[in-house]
Design a protein around this nucleic acid. Structure first.
Lengths: 114, 114
DNA sequence: TGAAATACCTTGACAGACGAGGTATAATGT
DNA sequence: ACATTATACCTCGTCTGTCAAGGTATTTCA
């Protein structure tokens, strides 16, 4: 893990919702997906992961059910709700704006910048 | 203020250091600069602002001195140190990487994403 | 005279991230 | 046979950054 978590902070929910947009999945697998998508450069800590799912379920963005695997460890599957999809869109827009603002703020080489 | 602070969280120090790269300034003016640079869409809360300056000074990234204004409110000026400049470069690189990773993670529309 | 702007600061609370610990099952290696 | 690793879930307590709310003091302007 090379990236400071504070930089990703605030995006955890968005990342999880993004993972669920294309279908139900379970926490452990989603985190593996994050790991893979970033070529191993980022993944959520387990404590962060499960508290995020709890938070998202409490706010009605996702709902969960136990998988019916006959073998292997039990899995709690999550499904994104309509509210979750709306929240996702909102979060994406916020990220888009935040990205521009940060870009503008962290690289300022004009003479008059306060 | 339309942007959730959590999205900017972790960038506060970078933003402040960026402001000081081009010359000494004081907290209130720097925050005004942030406000202007974002067309009023973002600014730091005062508590956040002064805590950040304290943190940066304690870590040796900036140092401070009182201005010699004969009139008006007293001003504490800040100057970026060599360590501060190095830290800034490091933070910029981290932001660059984080930006790519987040982009990759929040927009995932492939079939297999965990 | 009194409000607003400038400019500084602290305290306490809150939320998210995470280290450290726990449970249980299955697969793999020796 | 036995140990280790991987899968998969979870909680508790701590830490850190943000912020609401409060404060001080000066200057400007109506």
């Amino acid at each position: 893990m090379s990236i400071t978590s504070d930089l990703i902070r605030g995006h955890t929910d968005t990342i999880i919702l993004a993972s669920l947009i294309n279908g139900d999945s379970y926490a452990y697998r989603i985190n593996r997906g994050i790991y893979d998508a970033t070529s191993g450069r980022y993944e959520l800590k387990e404590a962060t992961l499960y508290t995020a799912f709890k938070r998202l379920e409490e706010s009605g963005c996702i709902c969960s059910y136990w998988g019916d695997e006959e073998t292997g460890a039990r899995r709690r599957y999550y499904s994104i709700t309509n509210r979750g999809r709306e929240t996702y869109k909102k979060l994406i827009n916020e990220w888009s704006e935040a990205k521009e603002l940060i870009e503008r703020l962290v690289i300022r080489d004009t003479a008059d910048n306060g």
